[in-house]
Design a binder for these strands. Sequence first.
DNA 1: ATAGGTATTGTTATATTATAACGATTCTAT
DNA 2: ATAGAATCGTTATAATATAACAATACCTAT
Lengths: 136, 136
Amino acid sequence: MKNKHGSKRALTRNQSLVFEALRKAKNPVGAYELLDQLREHGLRAPLQIYRTLDQLIELKIVHRLESLNAWTLCCDAEHDSTPVFAICNDCGIVTECFDENISSNIQKISKRSGFVADRSVIEIHGRCDQCETSQG
Amino acid sequence: MKNKHGSKRALTRNQSLVFEALRKAKNPVGAYELLDQLREHGLRAPLQIYRTLDQLIELKIVHRLESLNAWTLCCDAEHDSTPVFAICNDCGIVTECFDENISSNIQKISKRSGFVADRSVIEIHGRCDQCETSQG
DNA sequence: ATAGGTATTGTTATATTATAACGATTCTAT
DNA sequence: ATAGAATCGTTATAATATAACAATACCTAT
């Protein structure tokens, strides 16, 4: 099994467990919520979760949402560019999107001051289409 | 005394204490670090700090950096638009900047999917000019 | 100016999120 | 098979944040 980014290895047991838990979840999930869900599968300590999440991030198949202290699967798209997350305040759903312009704007902003960007956190809070239309 | 956004009230004692502590700091400061600094001035409990920070954010004179769990003064500029923070991994310095394009891109991205944006978190991590040039 | 209601503030306790330290296990190259 | 390196499990604890309620300050109408 290869992951979508061409890494050779299959996921470890812990990685699969966490990955599947995230896949089943509709929304981003916190570390302790994952721990609760995975206790029955033998994960007992927070560090097991945190370490596994770090690994999945390293593999580029999971993202951390900084403003939620929660994690979510990466969308299917291969991307090296900065993802933009739209986070609904009402239903909590998070949509990952991309925008060439934003990426290049960030490059521009930072270059302007000699700053060399490394990683960007872009999280938009608001109301998703569905929540917006369904109940005013 | 008016603040820069035209609010009528002077800052309360707690607000002034926290504001000054942030002003003196070179970099963003965490809540418990503020608490430690302000204990001698009578602030004893975390909530006193957290509440005051919320108030200062409400007044638009302080920002929270989500990816640092820390707070910093708002730059002098009046702005309603989304600030972009450039955060140096080395020296920790944070620069607040603006970019019309980013703001409008975010509008576009979100509108594209019917999302109504509310507040945006944009935090770029990397290396500042000074750190970049000074030690390769 | 004062009583009665409303807001804010202080305090205690506790919840939530994350990491340090170290021993046990597994992996890898010989 | 075995030594060294890397990973993993476990215990303990650190760091960050909030709930609940009592005490105080503050309006506002009289």
